[in-house]
Structure formats: structure tokens, C-alpha cells
Nucleic acid binder design. Structure first.
Lengths: 191, 191
DNA sequence: CCGCTCATGTAACTGGTTACATGATTTA
DNA sequence: TAAATCATGTAACCAGTTACATGAGCGG
């Protein structure tokens, strides 16, 4: 059975960190700025056990430190699986637009009155700007530590967030955001 | 219990279409360009039944047409739920970066050799360009039918896809895509 | 000694996926 | 008449969520 996206991502994280505890991996996910990756213990610990069972990760007990913990490292077959995922063809689904619940809301925004549409847009833009600020800090950190690929990925986050913002500004200027509300059964109604 | 994102989206679709069959809603999802929304019968039909049970949708049998089918329409409380979702504050998670498996791959791209990195980027860019072309057709369609909010949403897709593409081009120009491969345990190694 | 972080789990649940089943009607 | 599409489901499964449990060490 093929690995899930989350499994590939954990595999990649263990490769990138080198030998590390489950808790460290967990932190990486819970502290992620991207909500998508904020996984919990209930996801990560069983997943690590799964990858060990499949011999993609190796685990050993660490008694050196103060607290007892299990240290994971990637196995040769794990590295092979990671490389296959990275070098293999991009699944068509991974190239489609990522889900965006703000965009989805706008698709249905005709259902509420113009004043509320505008406040919704302002709210969305404000939150996205906040995300962008946090992102810039992250980028600086990765650049200063020479983590080149992480920096490139974070740049990718920034350009997408900026694109979303500039699009929201364009939406705000659209005539529909001052016009009379359009109702469900007269979708062709024009100003 | 609050509605899921998919439930809100279906609710919105029924509002937008007016009275319609489960199959029509299903088509909307299976034919979506965004992989995220490509739900199957097993998701949509039980979901519709759930919304009917919660009185957010109404169902009636249609015997007029050739094939027997159930027609769904949004109820007053359903419309209220939709409006509350649209006008309510954007959850912080919905404002974070959408997941992007291409970006995730790039985060770990140091694991494969430069030649493979480049071919991966070319592959990703090619597929995203294909998506963009399909998108332009959709935009034209919505513009010509006066579906203003759908057109705005599709514009949102376009700007994000273009941002991803321009970012991929920048990544391709980065020195790491010609340099010697970086390994897991010497992440600070520089050209 | 109280609360926080480190550290590892488990048990119940559930939304959505996969895959199958069924039958009628239209189109080639 | 065969294939495609319309149309509606169900049953098994499973990854990930929610929520809880536990205990050790550390800082104030």
C-alpha cells in the first residue's frame, strides 16, 4: 500500500532532522504555520509506529538524556521511498489548486448582503496579512541558518499569500460589493 | 455540532443551483478542477441525508421527469446556517497557507540529486500550466453567464496558480539546482 | 510545591474514500 | 444491442481528530 502524504512528510522530516524523537517531529507539526500540518499525538505516534513496522524508520531507546525517549532515524528503504516520492511524477491532484476556504466562501458570497460581504473581505485580508508577517520571520530564520530548501518553500508560501491578498483587493473593488444583493433564483440579475 | 467544510459547501451549492438532485450536486464535485472537491457518491449522498435530517435541506420526490429522482432545496434554517458561515469570522486555519504537496516536496528536495530536482520542477510546472489553461476556459464561461461570484472565485484560482508558477521559475534559477547534492547530516554545507 | 514543558501513548469516534450494486434511459 | 450516462445508494475500511492518561524533570 502506498504511503499517505502525511507519512511521506514525516519520513522527510526524519531525514532532514536526522535521528530525533517522536516529540520533536510532533512539535514540527503542531507549531507549523500551515493549519494543514498541525497534526496531533493521535496522528503522529501511531504513524511513526506504522513506519517502523514497515521498516522505513528505525527506532532505538535513548537512555543518555534526562528523560527516556525513543529516537527514530530513516532506514535505507525509507530513504529510497522518500526519493521515489520526490523524484516520481507529480500526481495530477497535487498540481490542482490547493483548497482555500476563503475562496469557497466568496463563491457563495451572493447569499449575504453587500455590507457583510465587505466586512468578510476585510476580515480575511487582515488574517492573511498576519500570516504573511509570521512568514517573513520564518524566512529570515531559514536564510540565516542556510536551510536553503526550507527557505525556498517558505518563499513559496509568501508568493501564494501575496497573490491571495492582491486578489482579495481586486474582489473588493468589484461592483458586486456595493450593488444590491443577488438572490438564489435570479442569478442573472444585473446592475 | 458544527457543519464540516464540505457540508457548508454542499449547502451553498444547493442554494446557488436552487432545487436540484443529488446527482447534480455530485457532478459539481466530481467534475471540479480542484482535486480537493472531487468527492464521491459515498461522501455526497450520506451528507445530503444528514443535512435533510438536520432540517437544513428539504427533499421531495420528482416524478415529472423520465427518471425518478429526489430534489433537494435549501430550508430557511439552512439558508441561515449558510449566511452565518459566510458572514461569521474567518477561522484562523482558513487564513493560513493552503496545503501544497509540490511545496512540501521542495522542502525535502535536498534528498535527491540536482538533475532529478530539475526534472521534478519541470514536471510540476507543466502540470500547473495545464491546470491554468483549463481555468481560463472556466473563467470565460462564468463571465459569459454572468455568474459574477463564481468568476471572482475562479480568478482567485488563477492568481494563485500563476503565483505558484512564478515561484517555481525562481526556484529553478536558485543555485541549489545545479550544485552538488546536500545530504541529511551536513545541512550547512555550501557551494 | 505548583505549573509548565518534555515525552509517549491509547481509546473512541467520524468524515470521507474505495469499491461495489442496481436499474433505467439515452445515444451510437 | 452495447456502451455511456443518469440516478441513487450501501458496506467496509481507515487515516486523522478529539480527548484523555500518565509520569518525569525543570523553573519560579
Amino acid at each position: 500500500m502506498p504511503l499517505t502524504d502525511l507519512e511521506h512528510t514525516v519520513l522527510g522530516n526524519v531525514w532532514k532532522k536526522g535521528e530525533c524523537s517522536g516529540y520533536e517531529i510532533l512539535q514540527e507539526f503542531t507549531h507549523s504555520t500551515a493549519a494543514y500540518y498541525r497534526s496531533r499525538e493521535g496522528a503522529i505516534y501511531p504513524l511513526l509506529a506504522r513506519l517502523v513496522r514497515r521498516r522505513l524508520l528505525r527506532a532505538r531507546a535513548d537512555k543518555q538524556g534526562n528523560r527516556p525517549r525513543r529516537l527514530y532515524s530513516i532506514s535505507p528503504s525509507g530513504l529510497a521511498a522518500l526519493k521515489a516520492w520526490l523524484a516520481g511524477p507529480i500526481p495530477e491532484a497535487d498540481a490542482t489548486v490547493p483548497p482555500d476556504l476563503v475562496r469557497t466562501r466568496i463563491y457563495f458570497l451572493g447569499a449575504i448582503e453587500p455590507a457583510k460581504r465587505r466586512s468578510m473581505l476585510r476580515d480575511a485580508a487582515k488574517r492573511i496579512r498576519g500570516q504573511l508577517a509570521a512568514n517573513r520571520r520564518k524566512l529570515k530564520h531559514f536564510e540565516s541558518t542556510g536551510n536553503v530548501f526550507a527557505a525556498l518553500a517558505v518563499e513559496g508560501i509568501s508568493v501564494v499569500m501575496q497573490a491571495r491578498l492582491s486578489w482579495l483587493r481586486r474582489v473588493e473593488c468589484s461592483p458586486e460589493f456595493a450593488a444590491i444583493p443577488r438572490t438564489a433564483f435570479s442569478p442573472r440579475q444585473k446592475a
